[in-house]
Amino acid sequence: MTELPRSYADRDAVARSFDLFGFLSRYGTVIALVLLVAFNLAFTRNFATMQTLNVNLTQVCTIVIVAVGMTLVIATGGIDLSVGSLMAISGALAPMIFMGKILPIGSIYLSVAAAMIVSVSVAGLLGLFNGWLVARFRIQPIVATLVLFIAGRGIAQVMTNGNLQTFRVPEFQWIGLARPLDIPAQVIIMAVIVAAAAWALKKTLFGRCILAVGGNERASELAGIAVSKIKLAVYGISGLCAGLAGLIVIAINSSSDANLVGLGMELDAIAAVAVGGTLLSGGKATIVGSLLGALTIQLVRFTLLANGVPDAAALVVKAGIIALAVWLQQQHRG
C-alpha cells in the first residue's frame, strides 16, 4: 500500500502542480542574476572588465556581511533593525581609538588592533543586548531592535559630538583599500564570512538549532534546545557583522560620519535576505541566497546607473524586485 498525500501533503502537491512558482522561488534569484549579466554584456559599455567587477563587489561587500548576520536572525523568526546604527557606533569608536583620542597607545599597530577589536566587540555586545530583550523579555524582535535603531545612531553622534572624523591611517584602512592578489581585501573578508556562515548553518549543531527554533520554537524548547541562548547568539553575531561592516565603510571613505555610516543598511540587508529566498517567518534560510540577493540588487542598481537612469528611479526598481521575491515565496508556500 502506498501512503497517499493528505492534508499538508495536499497543499504541497498543489504547489507542485503550479511548479512554475516553486521553480522561480528556488532559482529565481539565480535566473535574475544571469539575465542581468546577459543584459549588461549586451547593452552596457565596458561591462566585462575587472574594474566593473571590483566596483560592484566592493560596493556590495558591506551589505553582504550585514546580510549574513541578518539571515541567521531571520532564520530564528526574528529581525534586526539596529544593524545600521551599530555600524555607525563601531565606525565612530574605531577612529577615536586608533587616533589616540581615548587613550594614547604608542604603537600604531597596537592601537589599530585595539580599535578593531574593541569597536567590533562593542557592536557584538549591543547585538547581545538586542538578543537579551528578545529572549528574556519576549519583546517582538522588530520592537526590541528598534530601540538601538533609534538610540544607536544618537549614541554614535554623542560620542563624536556630531563631528566628522577624517584620517589617513593605512595600517587600519587596508580592510577597505588593500588589494592582495588584486582582490579587494573586503571581498576576501566577505567570502570568508559567507563561507563560514553557510557551513555553520548546514553542518553544525548551532545551525541546526537556529533553523529548529525558527521552524517551531515550542517544539525546539521541548526537545531540550536552549532557545534563549540561540537567540542571544544570532543577535550577537548580527551585531559583530554590523560592527565589521562599519569599519570597512569608514576605511573606504577615510572618514567617519556618524550621521551617514550604515544609513538604511538594515533595509538593504533585509531586502538581500528576502530576495535570496530565506523565509521571513523563519525556519528556512540560505546564506548563499542572501549573497545572490545582495548581488542582484546591486547589479540592478549598477545597470540602471550605467545606462543613465537616476538613482532615485533605481530605488523604485529595487522595491519592485523585493515585492516580486516575497510574492513568489508566498505562492510557493500556498
Binding site: 499538508y8 533553523l211 517551531n216 517544539a219 525546539s220 531540550g224 534546545i225 523565509l279
Partner: peptide, 21 residues
C-alpha cells in the same frame, strides 16, 4: 503540529532534534 514537529524540516532533522548534542 504546534509543539512536536518542525514542519519545514526533514524526517531526519526532526527525528534527531533532541539527540543533536
Amino acid at each position: 503540529k504546534s509543539e512536536g514537529i518542525v514542519p519545514e524540516m526533514t524526517v531526519a532533522e526532526n527525528l534527531t532534534l533532541a539527540l543533536l548534542p
